[in-house]
Amino acid sequence: MDIEINEELRAYIDPLSEDEYAALEGSLLAEGCRDALVLWGNVLVDGHNRYGICRKHGIEFRTVQNTTFRSMDDVRLWMIDNHLGRRSISDYQRGVLALRKKDILQARAAAAPAPAAPADAAETPPTRDGGAPAEPARPAMATREAVARAARLSTATVAQIEQIQKAAAPELVAAVKSGTISISAAAAVATLPAEEQVVAVAGGKDELRRAARQVREKKARARPADEPAAAGGGEGEDDLPPESTDVAELQGLVRALRAENADLKRKVANLTVALKEARGAKAESGM
């Protein structure tokens, strides 16, 4: 079978870093390709990096068909869920993927035909207890809270990622992805004009911190004394709230730190499993 590479699907998930790619290549050379590549017909859905490395070094691989796909959106949703559940990705990437899933599901709900309305209210069946009929179900992931649960992040962090996607210059997005600036600091810098964002990125980490701090201080000065601050504090020492930070901001910081702690525990668990598998494979090869 001739495997077809869809460039949109290959670029749908952020590529591996150089270190991650080198680690994968070393694993495939040492152990072979143990996981089957996932296809939809001839189209490669999962395993683009493995496929390229296997072809480069002549490593044998297996393929498996996913017969549940009915559309490209089905493929995208599967890719999102697969990476959210399996791959060690950054909080920013996780938030972006969950927001993409929300957009797909909401577009589907909007395109679905509306249920036929009864001729008049008298024909509307009552509920089992005789009360008024229930409200129609909301589309999946219709709320920021639902997106946050899917991404295993705080709602404040999801809101910050939405701000970055909406207003951040490409250079600022790249800085977030590389870890040069945290999500919350980037969300603050993203409120600046695009030209100022680019200048801040060019100035490096210290300049980005300074720009984020200035934005927060300006917002704090402009806020009326009796107006509560928005929740969603920082994620690192460059994001420490200013002296005017109130309880709501501190609560947002706690939520973000808890989400980060949960993510670290998940990463440690994944590394533990990977180490056990590697030791098992090494023991088998040495027998």
Rank of each mutant, 00 (worst) to 15 (best):
A114Q: 14
P170H: 08
R94H: 02
S182G: 14
P125S: 03
E145D: 09
E162P: 13
G52P: 10
M72R: 02
T157A: 10
S182M: 02
I181M: 05
A140L: 08
R144Y: 02
P133R: 05
G179L: 03
R149Y: 11
A167R: 15
D81G: 11
D73C: 11
A121K: 13
A174L: 15
L77I: 15
R108S: 07
A137T: 14
A111S: 13
A116K: 12
A98Y: 00
A151Y: 08
D91F: 03
V158T: 05
Q163D: 03
F61M: 11
G95Y: 05
Q160I: 00
A142E: 00
L84S: 09
D91I: 12
R76W: 02
Q163L: 03
L99S: 05
Q93K: 14
I183D: 00
R138E: 06
F69Q: 07
F69L: 09
K166Q: 12
N82G: 13
R50P: 02
R76K: 15
I104V: 14
T68C: 04
R94P: 09
A114S: 14
K56Y: 15
I104T: 13
L99Q: 05
V158D: 01
M141A: 03
K101I: 01
E145V: 07
D81N: 13
T143I: 09
Y92C: 01
L77P: 10
I80N: 06
V96G: 03
T68R: 13
E162L: 03
R100G: 06
